[in-house]
Structure formats: C-alpha cells, structure tokens
Design a binder for these strands. Sequence first.
DNA 1: TTTGAAAGTGAGCGATAGCTCATATTAATA
DNA 2: TATTAATATGAGCTATCGCTCACTTTCAAA
Lengths: 204, 204
Amino acid sequence: MSRPAGKTLLKPRKTPRQARSGATVDAILEAAARILERSGFDGYSTNAIARRAGVSIGSLYQYFPGKDAITASLIEREQDALWKDIAGIEAAAGGSDPLRTLIMIAVTHQLRRPALARILDVEEKRLPRDIAPSRLAEQLIITVNTYVEAAGYETDMEDATTARDIIAIIRGMVDAAGQYGEHDMQTLANRIYRAVVGYLSCEI
Amino acid sequence: MSRPAGKTLLKPRKTPRQARSGATVDAILEAAARILERSGFDGYSTNAIARRAGVSIGSLYQYFPGKDAITASLIEREQDALWKDIAGIEAAAGGSDPLRTLIMIAVTHQLRRPALARILDVEEKRLPRDIAPSRLAEQLIITVNTYVEAAGYETDMEDATTARDIIAIIRGMVDAAGQYGEHDMQTLANRIYRAVVGYLSCEI
DNA sequence: TTTGAAAGTGAGCGATAGCTCATATTAATA
DNA sequence: TATTAATATGAGCTATCGCTCACTTTCAAA
C-alpha cells in the first residue's frame, strides 16, 4: 500500500533481452487484462496478476515498477492496436469516406473486448496525468481534423474544438453501447456517423 | 479490506431520528465529496472521510454499511439535485425549447463542481450494479423521449435508442469539457445542442 | 566447459485499509 | 429528576495490499 514519492514510473524497469522474458511480460499483461474484464477492480492486485500469469511476484516487479505501470502498459497496448488500425486508413487509399472508416474502427475495437475496453477507459481517466499514456489523444485530434477538412467542413485548427467534440461524441456513444451490451456494429456505426455528420452540418 | 459476501448494502443501516445525526450524515457526505474532488481516490478512505467530517469512524459506520455506500449516497445526492432541476423544466411552461433547456441544465450541473462530477461519473460506472443508483438513467430516457417527440422528431419508444444516443452524446461532450477545463457554459451548450439537433435531423 | 549476466523465485515486511465493539455522552420522554 | 433510547467515540483487530531482497535457475558467449 505504500506509495512513496517519485515512484510513479511508467516504463518497465528492465527491458527484456531474452525471448522468455518477453513472454513473461506478455503473460503479465494478459493476466491483468483477464482479471480486469472478469472481476473488475476487485481482485486486481499485483499478487493476483502474478498468480494468474503463472509467474512469481518477484518477476512481475522486475519489469514493472508498480501496479499503475501495469495498467498503463495495458492501456498503451490497446491504444497502439487501435492506432495501428487508424493509421492504416490513409494507406488504404482515399476511396471511401475516411470519417466513416474511422468510426467503424473505433466501434470494432471497443466491441471486441467490451468489458476490458470500458474499464480501461475508466482507469485511464483515474491514472495520474504523468503516468497515463496520452499520445493517442493528440494523434487522434490531428487525424480527425484532417478528415473533417477533407470532407469539406470548416474547422479551427488551433483550439481543435471541432475535432475534440467529434471524438467526445464517438467515445460517448461507443462507451454507452458497450455498457448496454450492443453487438450490432453496423447499426451503431451508422448512428454515430449520423451524429458526427449532423454536428458538422447543423447550422443553428 | 475485507469484503465478505452479502455486505454490499446501499442504504444507511440506521435512519437518523434526531437533528444532530442528520447533520452527521451530511457532514460525512460533504467530506467525502471534498476529498474526492481535491485528491481523487488517493486518500479516499473511510478514516480520512470521518476525520475531515469531524466525526468519529464509529459514527460513520453507524449510518453507512461500507465505503461504497458512501460513494453511492454521494452519487444519489448529486443525481437528485440534477433531477430536481430537470423536473422543473415542465413546470416552467413549454415556452422555450425544452431540449435546449435540458442541455443547459446538464452543462451547468457538470461545471459547478467539475472535478467532483467527473470523478463520480467514473465511480458510478465502477460500482457494482446492485449498489449504484440507477433511477436517474431511466427517468432521463423517458423525459428525453418526450421532448424529442414534442419537437417533432420520430423516436422508437420501445428500445429508446434515440434517447439513449442523445444522452450518450450529452454525457460524452460534457465530460470531455470538464476534462479540458472548459468554463464557457453557453458556448458548450450551443455545441452540444448542434450535435443533438444534427443527430436528430441528419437523414443519411 | 566454464562463467557471468539475465531471468525467475517466494517468504515475508511494513503499511494501511475497512471495520467492530465496548464504552461514554447527549437528548427526549416519563 | 430519573430513565432510556439515540447518538458518538476511538483504540485496535484482521485482512490484505504493494513491494523487497536474498537467493536459485537458465541461457548464451567465451
């Protein structure tokens, strides 16, 4: 329970050099994910994570400086996967509507492991600013801004209000859908698309 | 840390009969609120709550069966205040646009104590279903449905998808605004209104 | 092989959390 | 004023948590 000052580090203290240690880190992260999505914060302890990963508590602390670091790494892992998909949009030519594709990716991602995604969203907000991953948020704003302008709508590149609003709309609707156990991704994506386009078009 | 089965009660174990005990309960709730909005979950312990409330830990447990019950009561307190404002809309004639009024109320409420509101939103999702207050959600859906139909838009009263989407949009945008430290309520309310009306009007 | 670094182990420490209960105080009732 | 129910107290119990460290095992380079 002790949380001395200067202890909130994000990065693993040791970088895996051999294959087996990489597997250990993966096992720890996956164990943490499974505990979180099955029982929430109850039972989400470092000892429980190590036990479920089939790894000793000592090994866990060889790679993570603290419990929050595990959660942060987990968030980063999911965000990287999401960002990888999003970054693929540009590669896949500009044939279809990139905004629509973006929404579909967000929906797909959130509904793949809904319980985990939702609890990580919550935990991300709870984590101290200096430990929580934040790259995704900035990258997303830029990307959304680009797509919105490409679609012919005006935006304010400076304060990025429009992009932030759109992201807030998507996140809000996708989160709610996960909460209510929705599973029809197409329908959900359509509704979100309506909200976003409606917001951009509305001239009241 | 023990959390035996059957211990997750929502209601205070004892109902205050004298004035002073009512004051005790209020002091506990306000102390919990202050701790939460000032330092988040760090330091949000029953002992700390009692100390800040100027009340003994024993008194705290006379009225609350556990820590979660305090948080739940706090959420309920805020939701009741919000609902009281919303219920006042109908009383205040149907002169202006009720949807717009509803949005303004939500914005005002969230930005009055933004840190507290945001952390309670998070905690509400984290709390076990059987202990978290849920009346507001149901009431809100009905109200929003009514306003939307009064404004001339079609809705599906059964699955309440439209109402839920609108609530998700409002919550998402208001939460994000609180996160980014926005304080201009009028501007924010206008943007949310655009999103909601846009969603309702968009025919894609 | 030898050898040293990398990886892995787990008993157990210090801290603190949630919570109880025997007791004291206060306020309403007779 | 005497009685009793309501309210308040806080030392301290137990459980568990995050985490350390002295130690063993495994692997790969020499």
